[in-house]
């Protein structure tokens, strides 16, 4: 974090002189508190987006956005400020996670288009993928499940607790009487099997 703190404010001011007032505002805790008191729930996340603009743009760039990073920052802005949110413990992490999800959504939309174009080319069954259509077929999902099962009973169970039930690694370690490192190793093992399967999906 400290690595970027110096440069952010500087470039920020240069690039967006007009927003200097806001930037100043977030260097003052007092002002920020008042903003929130004025019952503007978006102000909190807006402030975080503004004061971390360069950091987020850099993240979008390395995340694959390239030159569109600036535009995507605007998309992210819309996403986060239009949505009513409750109190957020760590707003920067929240924004970064949202940026990460934005990029994943873009990747998935692009893949969806590819798959649909391909399916049309094959004049297939007339089914169209729905908006939130899964990118893998039911058949592939069956293969995923079989691949998970094939890693062994314990890793498969740990993976289900972690990925399907949403249990934390710590909780799983506790309920199974295993060390955290064992849980982690088993999770890695299952994900590695899925990665291998995914390569085969691509090849097929």
């Amino acid at each position: 974090m400290a690595l970027y703190d110096g440069s952010i404010t500087g470039t920020f001011l240069k690039r967006r002189g007009g927003a200097a007032r806001r930037d100043m505002a977030f260097q003052s805790n007092q002002f920020m508190t008042r903003s929130i008191d004025r019952a503007d729930p978006a102000q909190g996340i807006e402030g975080v987006l503004l004061s971390n603009r360069d950091r987020i743009i850099r993240f979008l760039q390395v995340r694959g956005a390239g030159e569109s990073a600036e535009d995507l920052f605007q998309d992210l802005w819309m996403r986060l400020t239009e949505r009513a949110t409750g109190p957020i413990a760590d707003p920067l992490s929240y924004a970064m996670r949202a940026a990460n999800n934005l990029m994943l959504d873009r990747y998935r939309s692009a893949r969806q288009r590819e798959i649909r174009d391909k399916a049309w080319g094959e004049t297939s069954d007339g089914h169209e993928p729905s908006a939130e259509a899964s990118l893998i077929s039911r058949q592939q999902l069956e293969q995923v499940q079989a691949a998970i099962a094939a890693t062994g009973e314990r890793p498969a169970h740990i993976f289900r607790r972690f990925r399907v039930d949403g249990a934390s690694q710590r909780d799983i370690a506790q309920e199974m009487g295993l060390s955290l490192s064992t849980i982690e190793a088993d999770l890695r093992k299952v994900y590695a099997a899925l990665a291998a399967l995914r390569r085969q999906f691509d090849a097929g």
């Binding site: 994943l104 899964s134 990118l135 999902l141 995923v144 399907v164 994900y191 899925l194 990665a195």
Partner: peptide
């Protein structure tokens, strides 16, 4: 690619 497959597992 991996995160996308991971997200598809939401339907499990």
């Amino acid at each position: 690619a991996l995160a996308s497959l991971d997200r598809d597992l939401d339907v499990l």
